[in-house]
């Protein structure tokens, strides 16, 4: 995982609540067995015209198709971003498209943890704060936002300043690009002790020997 701390970028506004992972990455791309190459499938259906003679062509009105937002590393959305399916493909697609942070009033639990494992900062601000940023970035696509992970703040050049919560451990992992599995294995002695202490608890075994 790539370490991340301070990020300054223009931001793409997607002002909708409850953006679910089916929209972020539609199911047909979940058949792939690779971990990379999802960038072109991000918001696949929303990026394309759905009906009429131009069906299937890029929809020029969709924010990620607008040239002025290309290169944005920050995504702005409304409440409950990333709800629905547990597919980590959603986090892969967002990261591989080039986003390093999502700012929204709230995030769904599983997406929250998937994003953290892919070096994406999720900054939860208040509804009003997010609205301010959405308005500024919609009015001026060149408007730049700074996300500072160390300080847990979001700011801009017009004096916007807001803090976001972040679990200290998650922050430490993001700042240093750490692999969770390696960290858990540092506690292997505790794990071995736990397993031997409960080895007779057959009712916790999926396939107990006395079945």
């Amino acid at each position: 995982m790539q370490p991340i701390n301070i990020l300054t970028s223009i931001a793409a506004p997607l002002p909708l609540p409850n953006i679910d992972t089916d929209q972020i990455i539609p199911k047909q791309f979940l058949k792939r067995i690779e971990r990379t190459g999802y960038e072109d499938f991000l918001f696949y259906d929303w990026r394309r015209i759905q009906d009429g003679p131009d069906a299937g062509k890029p929809d020029p009105t969709f924010v990620l198709n607008k040239p002025e937002f290309s290169g944005a590393q920050i995504l702005l959305a409304e409440r409950n971003f990333g709800c629905g399916s547990s597919r980590e493909h959603a986090a892969w697609a967002i990261a591989q498209f080039g986003f390093r942070a999502v700012i929204a009033p709230s995030f769904a639990d599983i997406f929250f943890s998937n994003a953290g494992k892919n070096g994406i900062i999720l900054a939860a601000l208040s509804e009003a704060e997010v609205q301010t940023l959405i308005e500024r970035c919609t009015a001026n696509p060149k408007h730049r936002i700074t996300v500072n992970l160390e300080a847990q703040t979001v700011s801009d050049e017009q004096g916007f300043q807001a803090g976001f919560p972040m679990d200290p451990f998650r922050k430490h992992c993001l700042l240093n690009g750490l692999d969770d599995i390696g960290l858990t294995l540092l506690h292997e002695d505790k794990l071995n002790a736990y397993e031997s202490q409960r080895q007779n608890a057959f009712w916790l075994d999926p396939k107990p020997l006395n079945a």
Binding site: S86, K117, N118
Partner: peptide
Amino acid sequence: GDSHTSTHGAFGALAFGIGTSEVEHVMATQ
């Protein structure tokens, strides 16, 4: 690695869906 893992909670199990990185985490460390 499926959000509807919550189904198994009907038995009084603590059951929840996880992403693929976590699937790997469980494979490696249980």
